[in-house]
Simulated assay, not measured.
Amino acid sequence: MNSSVIEDRPNLKEPSVGDKILSQFKSNGALWAFFLLLLINILITPNFLQIQTLYVNLTQVATVAIVAIGMTLVIASGGIDLSVGALMALAGTIAPMIFLSDFGMSYPVLGLFVAIVVAISAAGVAGLFNGFLISKYNIQPIIATLILFISGRGIAQVLTNGELQTFDNPSFEFIGTGRVFGVPVQALITIVLALSIAWFMRRSIYGRFLLAVGGNEKAAELAGVPATKVKLMAYMVCGLLAGIAGLITTAINSASDANQTGQLMELDAISAAIVGGVLLTGGKAPILGAVLGAAIIQLVGYTLLANGVHDAVAMVAKAVIIIVAVYMQQVRGAK
């Protein structure tokens, strides 16, 4: 073989161990951060490995994870949803109104079923309304969802006259406080939803359509993708998931509080989705990553509070996490 040919070949340098570790961190940063947080807590946080501590963290992360899954779908479509907290309050208000009504008291089982279905459906319809404004009238997502961000909670407050609705309904409260083989029911609901939606996104045509619309909507439409229907479904599912989270929160508190339920949830959900790896520019929908992001956000807050750090610092820490996550996205995008 001609030696000059060999000499002309590019000099391929084998990546060093440090480069490999850095590459793995960039591609799996959320997972590494989660394990690092676990290790830190094991070393410095008192009683972290106790079952009760695990139970507390699972119950506090479940609702954020559920809403973050819906937010991930919306962001993957190229949008955003600021109304999820208000939709939680709306669903959490409607359900007790039904099972505490004369109909609900006369037919407890049927009344509870109707209450749950109607409450979740109402949140889904509200999400559909968001999607309709965005896909049909081309209203910017942040403006369109701001409408229900304001009016959704207002409707819930009108329905209850701004008063707390307390109740004693063990069957309903089970979804928020019950356990199955020691595992919180709300955690099981979260796992089932996350795995089901992740499977659906990976296996269905809709999943490919959603990523295509989020990546380049005009190109997707030219390729025959029904972008309007894709967006409508994303916002509807986000609303449905917010409704489920609202029912869980209401069940935990044994009361419907239109003023407080879902407060700032939109920020936590967006944070979890970003930390979980969703691209703010759309085109990527890491469903399980959203759950992992919610767990990281929860662990950061728990770690600081359990070690005597003020809650305000925890809020700053969340902001730092988001900045780092966005920076990592830009680094990967640049490459």
Results as ranks from 00 to 15, higher is better:
G127P: 05
I287E: 02
I147A: 12
M1G: 10
I189F: 05
V109D: 13
L148N: 01
D268L: 15
I252V: 12
V192C: 12
P170K: 06
R203N: 07
L22I: 15
I120Y: 01
G207Q: 05
G214N: 04
V114M: 15
L267D: 13
M105T: 12
L148W: 00
I116D: 06
G131E: 11
D102M: 08
I80G: 02
T63S: 08
V309I: 08
E7C: 14
M328C: 11
I323G: 10
P108Q: 10
G333F: 15
L100H: 06
G215H: 07
A62Q: 01
Q165C: 07
Y107G: 11
I322S: 05
V185A: 11
V56W: 15
V309G: 03
A122N: 02
F113I: 12
F34L: 14
L58Q: 10
V125H: 04
N216G: 00
P226G: 08
T177K: 11
F113L: 12
L305S: 13
L133V: 05
T177A: 14
F200Y: 09
S23C: 03
S83W: 00
G282I: 01
I175G: 02
L288A: 14
L241R: 03
V225K: 06
F99G: 02
G162M: 09
N253V: 15
G127M: 02
I51N: 12
F132A: 13
P108S: 13
V67A: 05
S135T: 11
K335Y: 15
I134D: 04
L82N: 06
L164F: 11
